[in-house]
């Protein structure tokens, strides 16, 4: 296996992007930041991969328009996934492993506010017996939260603790769109939304984009003193049906964790769009109590569709570059109620 590291990261998150859903205007400055961080031009990038969805954009082939942000004469080596940035990163990592290229830039974007996000996401469900009911994302997460509460696996106070810590940490993150912790008591006194979820248990609808730069071996060492080496990368999928899996668990996250060496992890950036999902993930990853979880504020305070997962990898990498930590695990999810889970370990060794 080739040593591949995260060496660049740029992001934007906002409640409402005043621009087109192809997000070209948003991507151009992000790519510029990546060139500045690496000292590269677009010609130094061996492979490009983007993540987005036409269901968010409300138009066909929105990712083709986004390619304008790269500039593609002469042509570039480019791909696209209808998935989060973290999966675009996975494809780029594989591409580097093949030996065909040494560097890659992956980016993802989404203007969630253009439509009704929780409704649009019904289209990722089983189309015969689920989609015709239009079960929205928040309702499905709430059904999962209730199962855990009824089973005594977690309670509303534990969920509020996650929200309070996230909102407090988000105060230090300029990109978080919801911030300001108070106390568990104060949060529990707020009204129910999708019972048993309160609004602070659900990530806010977020527009945004992010980009990550990967490089192999010496290419990475040229860019960063302490590149964030990808020491493990794994993803698994659980059945889509809400009826056939134990909703208090995420077996695919546990399987991904079993593929990786999580010992010595100091920090975990977990892509948990709902507060109880962080509790599930901490259990499946068997994280020790002293592991710092989501110092960025996490997806609960800002969750741009299609980049919210990859941003977890970028946030973790940035803390390795700075020397703040030596080893982290980043997580990305997709599908209803933590159906798909990707884990990535990052290390500062050299």
């Amino acid at each position: 296996m080739r040593d591949v590291a995260v060496v660049g990261f740029a992001q934007r998150q906002m409640p409402e992007f005043d621009g087109s859903p192809t997000c070209v205007e948003l991507l151009v400055p992000l790519l510029a930041e990546c060139y500045e961080q690496t000292g590269w031009t677009r010609r130094d990038v061996g492979f490009w991969c983007s993540g987005s969805s036409d269901y968010l954009a409300g138009r066909s082939f929105s990712f083709v328009q986004a390619v304008d942000a790269i500039g593609v004469i002469p042509p570039v080596n480019e791909s696209h996934v209808e998935m989060d940035l973290a999966w675009a990163l996975y494809e780029a990592w594989l591409k580097i492993q093949t030996g065909e290229v040494d560097t890659a830039l992956v980016y993802a974007f989404g203007k969630s506010s253009a439509g009704v996000l929780r409704r649009s996401l019904s289209l990722q469900l089983e189309p015969y017996t689920m989609t015709p009911l239009w079960p929205d994302t928040v309702s499905l997460a709430a059904l999962q939260a209730r199962v855990g509460i009824d089973a005594g696996v977690w309670d509303e106070a534990a969920m509020a603790e996650v929200a309070n810590r996230s909102l407090t940490d988000a105060e230090k993150n300029e990109y978080s769109i919801r911030k300001g912790g108070s106390s568990v008591e104060e949060l529990l006194a707020r009204p129910m939304y999708a019972d048993p979820l309160r609004k602070h248990d659900c990530s806010p609808v977020t527009d945004g984009a992010a980009a990550i730069v990967l490089a192999a071996g010496d290419k990475a060492r040229e860019v960063r003193e302490k590149p964030a080496w990808i020491s493990g990368l794994a993803h698994f999928v659980d059945p889509m049906s809400m009826g056939t899996r134990d909703l208090t668990r995420a077996p695919s996250a546990a399987r991904a964790a079993a593929q990786l060496d999580l010992s010595g992890v100091e920090l975990a950036e977990l892509h948990a769009p709902f507060s109880h999902q962080e509790l599930i993930l901490r259990r499946e990853l068997d994280l020790a109590d002293d592991v710092r979880v989501n110092p960025s504020g996490g997806a609960l305070t800002s969750n741009p569709m299609f980049s919210g997962g990859g941003i977890r990898i970028g946030e973790a990498a940035a803390r390795i570059w700075s020397g703040e930590i030596g080893k982290a695990v980043a997580h990305a999810t997709s599908g209803p109620a933590l159906q798909q889970n990707l884990l990535c370990t990052l290390e500062g060794r050299n």
């Binding site: 009704v116 239009w134 929205d136 709430a142 059904l143 019972d195 048993p196």
Partner: peptide, 12 residues
């Protein structure tokens, strides 16, 4: 399990 849908979306 159950949840309350306070703001139904079109098609529900």
């Amino acid at each position: 399990s159950w949840t309350w849908v306070p703001e139904p979306v079109k098609g529900q």
